[in-house]
Design a binder for these strands. Structure first.
Length: 423
RNA sequence: GGAGAGGUGGCCGAGUGGUCGAAGGCGCACGCUUGGAAAGCGUGUGUGCCUCACAAGGGUACCGAGGGUUCGAAUCCCUCUCUCUCCGCCA
């Protein structure tokens, strides 16, 4: 969420930035600033009364010590009304603070200056294209047919034990999954990330910290009895590892990677978008997260994007990089790059990674700060990216590498799969 | 799941109703000392909020979290949570 002091000091700039998202924050800002002024007034008033009460308590203590009981009783009577007032004021203060937060939580992140204005995916700015589109035969198959042909993935079996969108991988299909996970983790280690294996169930505080809650709770599976959610992305777990921390500047940057199964309800999706592996309720993803000094976050975003691009190069997949337009960006992001691979069997681009700089938006929610020497604590910047999400990578690998002899495995993966062809 | 014991500052560890933001030690920072270092000595060493110039100073809150009792709570009571021990169950 945005920070109240920022809103106060940079009102105009933030309004403009949010405007390109078609988000009119005028009323929100006015209300927040008014509430914040009220909050300060109440705080001042309350502090004065508490100070008074503390003083009286001290005096009463003294009087008892010296045996002046009667005077002590008189003073006690004096505290009664003030206690009443302090209670009222405390209550008011809490309510005001809650109101401010309730409003803040509704405002999306302010997009970076470089974010192109637009309404939908078609307005995204393609900043890079790489690799040649596959030259497939006329009768090239989509991956769901290949998966069936080579008995790699069984969608119906998954539906039998769980439901649609929960595929079962088998044989070389399962081994390919495992190979990709190891491959992605190893590459991240080489790039200096520390590997984590977090839980997949998350509590509401964590969901709130990274911005899945309160606005996107319908996208997560909810275990009501235990008040937990199934994580939709390891971004939640990794970033929340540092919730409520005050870091020393020497501890930055923090670079983390985790493989985790991800769960999404994907309510409202339909048609060819959800066919095969294109959109699942449960999928595998390796996620990279960085906690950075604010001065570095944008150069690090480029680094992370290049890193992910490097993975796609190794997998020999044609891809393009899009800088998301204001209308296509996530709620919490200030700047996002999407990576899409071309999948020849379906002849369409599939999003396989999304790399974002959240600036201090998540840090504010997480209360995650760093301190440099004697300076005041400052919010860190957080970034994350998929590196990578498996299903669509698998889809593209199967579709693009199909030959009459079988499906070829890219050289970089063979050490991990232990086979170089699926036939 | 049952029973018990605990959660205090960067760390260790005192503190069972008042003078405690919190003894002491360690660590850390600065200074003195030294040819240099160690030791020693001295000083300092949390965060949020309000006031204010986002300075100094002052006020206030925070001893796992949230409530309560009291003129006054780290200290008493209640709820929750986490950790540890024993039992049960179990991959």
């Amino acid at each position: 969420m945005l920070n109240v002091n920022d809103i106060r000091e940079n009102t105009k700039k933030l309004l403009e930035r949010l405007e390109i998202r078609n988000f009119d924050a005028h009323n929100y800002f006015n209300e927040i600033l008014a509430l914040d002024s009220q909050r300060k007034e109440t705080q001042t008033e309350l502090d004065a009364i508490l100070s008074n009460l503390n003083q009286l308590a001290k005096e009463i203590g003294e009087l008892y010590k010296t045996g002046e009981k009667e005077q002590a009783e008189n003073k006690k009577a004096e505290t009664a009304t003030q206690k009443e007032t302090s209670k009222t004021l405390t209550d008011k203060l809490h309510k005001t603070e809650e109101s401010i937060k309730a409003l803040l939580v509704l405002i999306p992140n302010a997009p970076d200056e470089s974010v192109p204005k637009g309404n939908a995916a078609k307005d995204n700015e393609i900043v890079k294209e790489s690799g040649n589109l596959p030259n497939l035969e006329e009768n090239a198959l989509p991956h769901w047919e290949l998966a069936d042909k080579y008995k790699l993935i069984d969608f119906e079996l998954g539906a039998k034990i769980t439901g649609s969108g929960f595929p079962v991988y088998r044989g070389k299909g399962a081994r390919l999954q495992r190979a990709l996970i190891s491959f992605f983790l190893d590459k991240a280690l080489e790039a200096g990330y520390t590997e984590y294996q977090p839980p997949v169930l998350i509590n509401p505080e964590s969901g709130y910290g990274t911005g899945q809650l309160p606005d996107k709770d319908a996208q997560m599976y909810h275990l009501e009895l235990d008040k937990m959610y199934l994580s939709p992305t390891a971004e939640v777990q990794l970033t929340n590892l540092y919730r409520d921390d005050l870091l020393k500047i020497e501890e930055l940057p923090i670079k983390m990677v985790a493989y985790a199964q991800c769960f999404r309800r994907e309510a409202g999706s339909y048609g060819k978008d959800v066919k095969g592996l294109n959109r699942l309720h449960q999928f595998d993803k390796v996620e990279i997260v960085q906690i950075q000094h604010p001065d570095n976050s944008y150069s690090v975003l480029e680094e992370m994007t290049n890193y992910v691009a490097g993975l796609l190069d190794l997998l020999e997949l044609p891809y393009r990089v899009a800088k998301l337009c204001s209308g296509d960006m996530g709620f919490t992001s200030a700047l996002t790059y999407d990576m899409e691979v071309y999948s020849g069997g379906q002849q369409r681009w599939l999003e396989v990674s999304s790399i974002s700089n959240f600036e201090s938006f998540q840090a504010n929610r997480l209360n995650l700060r760093f301190k440099e020497g004697d300076k005041k604590a400052t919010m860190v910047h957080t970034l994350n990216g998929s590196a990578l999400a498996l299903p669509r990578i698998v889809a593209a690998l199967l579709e693009n590498n199909q030959t009459k002899d079988g499906i070829k495995i890219p050289a970089a993966l063979v050490d991990y799969t232990g086979f170089n062809i699926i036939d």
